[in-house]
């Protein structure tokens, strides 16, 4: 497979040498791919603008020894334009890209559901219909669920007893009952847990009606939960701005 075609979302770009870039992509069929875009930093590059973060592109790649090489790129959707014009949306989007890169750890291992989730997330974020922080939290919760780390919200994460519990323990895996509750558990308001559940299920009517305070608490819990289970910090989260 020296030459192959795929579609992907650009997650990150890093400068390489004089005018090249290393482009990290989440692709539909191949999974996470790191490829070199030759000469893309030159102003006369034919596809430099297409290989910017948030771009959904149709690609032709050449398999290299360590990194693949982008030989052709065509834009399918350029989400960067609408996102960069709105700073809070841009920062939330960057956190989504970084999460995707850290959650799909293994290169060239197909991750179709993560790809579709990110594509849908970026489309929603660029559409501008919802608070960017809600879109980010919904994306994080669902990408965790796809990776097998969905938080337990309707049962105790330890003993499995059904019902509405009051405590949330990040390292236990979600809500915990009073018997299982470990030290240092958070006690979120019931509305916060309901918001997390709505975001996980895609109930936007409920999520959009939530209060600013509940959204703040929800974001804090989701961020802590994600970073604990990824065993990795998401650097962009520090810079995410509220709309």
């Amino acid at each position: 497979m020296s030459l192959y075609r795929d579609e992907g979302i650009v997650l990150r770009t890093q400068k390489l040498g004089e005018a090249d870039r290393i482009v990290t992509l989440l692709t539909r069929r191949t999974g996470l791919v790191r490829a070199v875009g030759k000469g893309v930093r030159r102003t006369k590059s034919r596809f430099g603008a297409r290989l910017e973060p948030f771009s959904h592109v149709d690609l032709q790649l050449h398999t290299g020894r360590t990194l693949d090489i982008v030989t052709q790129a065509d834009t399918l959707h350029a989400y960067g334009g609408p996102l960069v014009a709105d700073y809070p949306r841009y920062t939330a989007g960057t956190a989504m890209l970084e999460t995707a890169e850290k959650i799909v750890i293994v290169e060239k291992d197909p991750a179709l559901r993560q790809f579709l989730l990110l594509l849908g997330g970026l489309r929603t974020l660029a559409g501008g219909g919802h608070d960017p922080r809600l879109v980010l939290d919904a994306y994080m919760l669902r990408s965790l669920a796809v990776a097998g780390y969905a938080p337990a919200l309707e049962e105790c994460a330890r003993c499995g007893s059904q019902g509405t519990h009051r405590n949330f323990a990040v390292h236990a895996g979600g809500m915990v009952c009073t018997v299982c509750r470990p030290a240092g558990s958070a006690t979120p308001a019931p509305a916060v847990v309901a918001l997390m559940l709505a975001l996980l299920r895609g109930d936007w009517e409920h999520a959009d009606a939530s209060t600013e305070r509940d959204r703040g608490q929800c974001s804090g819990l989701v961020a802590a939960y994600l970073q604990w289970h990824l065993e990795n910090g998401i650097r962009s989260l520090r810079l995410v701005e509220r709309a």
Partner: peptide
Amino acid sequence: LPVGGDLEYADEVTLG
């Protein structure tokens, strides 16, 4: 558009 280039080779983002 870059000066001295051909329009047909410009990518859609730049042309837009």
